[in-house]
Amino acid sequence: MSLLTKVARMYHEQHIRQPEIAQRLHISQSRVSRLLKEAVNLGVVRTIVVTPPGVHSQLEDAIRDRYGLADVVVGGDDGGSDGGDLDDNALLATLGSAGAAYLETTLSEKDDIGVSSWSSTLLAVVDAMTPQRTRLARSAVQLLGGVGDPSVQVKATHLTDRLARVTGAQARYFPAPGIVARKSVRDALLEDPYVSEVASAWDALTVALVGIGSLRPSPLLQSSGNAISDKDQDSLRELGAVGDVCLHFFDAGGALVDSELEERVIGISGAQLRAIPRTIGIAGGARKVDAIRAAALGGWIDVLITDVGTAHRLVD
């Protein structure tokens, strides 16, 4: 036990490499390795991870395990741990910073990223990203046309353009409205050569970056004209819808709602979206808790990036 403790202290406290320990103590390096393993097994050496402020590993693990997600990132400080709400600006800053850090560390130059229509949350993420010297992605492809007022639809293109710039990717825009009046109009637009060419790229995507919408739009979204009509909202509410990803509306359990609106959306299909290896949902705030929970339960997202207050609501 004395030799074991001495070896453990030399290696872990004095940071002496195994070959030098073996030379100093006149024992073989293989014996040094065996003693170090035995020290761990006997509890002589114990590894303790001290979580720094602003890191919420246990909360992230709890959400990941509860909802079967691949990964969870919780941003913000512990001030929101009591479930208190951040104001809109603070929430956007928190989600933007957390989302940017995640993308900058997990994207690769071979990734083809799909990005959903304009949202203030996704725009906050890409605005918080720092352009890199090396390319972070191969392409950035728009997944959905702009929604609402045509004068506002340009923001969907702006989001894709900004993401392409900060990642060094090639931008591919989707020149179509997000919702049309009839299914026949949607089918006709999808036959346009340029529209169909962009749509064909959806099957090769490796990452999707999406917002998670609640059925009740934010005041900002409503006032901007970038939201679905009140009539469509009422119809979806009657069917039990609580939220959407890329305008695919689902109920509280995450099941797709069979609505007439589904046939009028011009964008990536639900099946194509689910087939993407990694779909990253970024959303937070009390208004969106039900939608976020349903998106996770229904398998619409693989990774969730959210704020502390929302995270606590998801595990309570």
Score class of each variant (00 low, 15 high):
residue 250 F to N: 02
residue 171 A to H: 06
residue 8 A to P: 01
residue 148 G to S: 08
residue 153 Q to I: 05
residue 150 P to G: 12
residue 207 V to K: 13
residue 194 Y to I: 15
residue 185 V to H: 15
residue 85 D to N: 09
residue 135 R to M: 13
residue 90 A to L: 00
residue 155 K to G: 01
residue 34 R to S: 14
residue 199 A to V: 12
residue 316 D to C: 10
residue 37 K to M: 06
residue 76 G to I: 04
residue 180 V to T: 15
residue 213 G to V: 01
residue 239 L to Q: 11
residue 240 G to S: 07
residue 303 V to W: 08
residue 241 A to E: 06
residue 176 A to Q: 08
residue 243 G to Q: 07
residue 145 G to E: 07
residue 84 G to R: 03
residue 99 G to E: 03
residue 229 S to D: 06
residue 101 A to L: 05
residue 77 D to Y: 11
residue 165 R to C: 05
residue 29 Q to Y: 09
residue 143 L to R: 07
residue 316 D to S: 14
residue 275 A to N: 09
residue 253 G to I: 10
residue 95 L to G: 08
residue 272 Q to E: 12
residue 122 L to D: 04
residue 238 E to A: 12
residue 194 Y to P: 03
residue 192 D to P: 07
residue 216 R to H: 13
residue 174 F to Q: 04
residue 114 G to Y: 09
residue 271 A to M: 05
residue 228 I to M: 15
residue 102 Y to C: 03
residue 185 V to Q: 14
residue 221 L to D: 09
residue 80 G to V: 09
residue 239 L to A: 12
residue 64 R to N: 03
residue 311 A to P: 10
residue 294 A to F: 11
residue 20 E to W: 11
residue 178 G to P: 13
residue 191 E to A: 14
residue 85 D to V: 12
residue 83 G to M: 03
residue 120 S to M: 00
residue 77 D to Q: 07
residue 73 V to L: 10
residue 101 A to M: 05
residue 96 G to M: 04
residue 71 D to L: 02
residue 62 A to S: 14
residue 229 S to E: 08
residue 201 A to V: 10
residue 286 A to W: 01
residue 161 D to L: 15
residue 144 L to C: 14
residue 205 L to C: 13
residue 28 S to T: 15
residue 214 S to G: 15
residue 281 G to S: 04
residue 36 L to Y: 12
residue 204 A to Q: 14
residue 252 A to V: 11
residue 68 G to T: 09
residue 169 A to R: 00
residue 14 Q to Y: 13
residue 275 A to G: 01
residue 236 L to F: 13
residue 112 D to G: 14
residue 73 V to E: 01
residue 266 I to A: 08
residue 310 T to Q: 02
residue 275 A to Q: 09
residue 214 S to Y: 07
residue 47 T to M: 05
